[in-house]
Amino acid sequence: METLTSPRRAAYAGPTCPQCGTRYREPLPDRGRVLCSCEQRYEVALFHPRPMTSAPAQAVAPGSAPCARHAHNAAVASCEHCGAFMCSLCRIDVEGAGVCAACFERLSASGTLASARVGFRNYNGIAWMLAVVGLVPFFGVLLGPLAVLAALKGRQQERKLGESMGRRRALVALVLGTLEFFGAAVTWFALVSGAMS
C-alpha cells in the first residue's frame, strides 16, 4: 500500500494490472475486461482527468484591488480566514473555502484542516489494546488506568480533530479499564491481607 511517506512513489504510467502491477502497453478501451499475462482477468475503467493547471493571474487594472502578495496581480477573492486580498495564484480552495497560502500553512500545521491531515495517533486503538491485555490477571492494576487515559485522550482527539475512529472500542476500553483496575486492586489487597494474616 503506497502512502505519502513511501519513498519514490512512481507516477501512474498507464493501465496497470491490479494484481501483478504490470503495465498494459496496448491501448485499452475506457471500459472493458482485460486478461493480464499473470492470468488475472479484471474489469477496468480508465479516466482521463484534465491536466493540473492554474488559472493565469490577471494584471491589476484601475478600479480593481491588488493582491496582498503580488502587487501587479488583480485580487479575485479575499481569504475567508484572514480577509487578505488574493489573486488566482494565491487562492487555495479547500473544504469549500478559499484561503491564502499563509493561512493554509497555518491551518494545516495546527491540524485544523481535515483534508490536509496526513497522519495521527490512534489513541482509541491503543486504549483497546491496553484494555484487552489488562484482562491478564494482575496486569489490570497498571494497564487499566492506562487504558482509561488513552480512551480519554482519544475522546479529546475526537473533539479537537473530529477523528472518531474506534469510538465504540474506546468506550468499551474505558469501562473495561475501570473494572480491571478495581478488580486487580481488590485482588492484590485480598492476597496481601491473606498473606499478612
Binding site: M1, E2, T3, L4, T5, Y12, P15, T16, P18, Q19, Q40, R41, Y42, E43, V44, A45, L46, F47, P49, R50, S115, R117, V118, G119, F120, R121, N122, Y123, G125, I126, M129, E163, M165
Partner: peptide, 28 residues
C-alpha cells in the same frame, strides 16, 4: 480517503476524484 493503520499510527492519503486514473475490479 485511505487510512493506513500501521500499529497505532494512522497515515491518511487522499486520492482526489479529479485525479483518479483507473478503477479496477477483479476476483482472486
Amino acid at each position: 480517503e485511505v487510512d493506513d493503520i500501521d500499529g497505532f499510527d494512522v497515515v491518511r492519503t487522499r486520492v482526489l476524484l479529479d485525479d483518479v486514473m483507473q478503477l479496477s475490479l477483479h476476483k482472486r
